[in-house]
């Protein structure tokens, strides 16, 4: 049963990826694209966690943690850029 559920979850998260990616391509404004990118990062964490359960391996956690971290930092940096015009002063 678990493997069926995991397959279903994979396809749901995959669809989420596609929708976020569409917003990244289309998104009329810059904050829209940044938001889509942030969502893609979080979806990637979800996908990695699912992969970890699927393969019964804990190896993917460090990757998930790092992706979450990088996603946060890049979102903040891009927002700072929009707010101030530069990132590091």
């Amino acid at each position: 049963m678990l493997s069926v559920v995991i397959d279903l979850a994979f396809s749901l998260v995959g669809a989420a990826f596609a929708l976020s990616f569409w917003r990244l391509l289309v998104g009329p404004s810059l904050p829209d694209r940044i938001l889509a990118l942030d969502t893609l990062y979080v979806d990637a964490v979800a996908l990695l966690v699912l992969l970890g359960i699927h393969r019964s391996s804990t190896l993917y956690f460090e990757a998930a943690l790092l992706i979450a971290l990088m996603g946060f930092v890049s979102t903040i940096a891009l927002c700072k850029y929009l707010l101030r015009g530069d990132i590091i002063e």
Partner: peptide, 17 residues
Amino acid sequence: LILAGALFTFIGSFGLW
């Protein structure tokens, strides 16, 4: 838990779309 998690992830992106 897995289904609920995947569903909510999907709904989040669906709302974004």
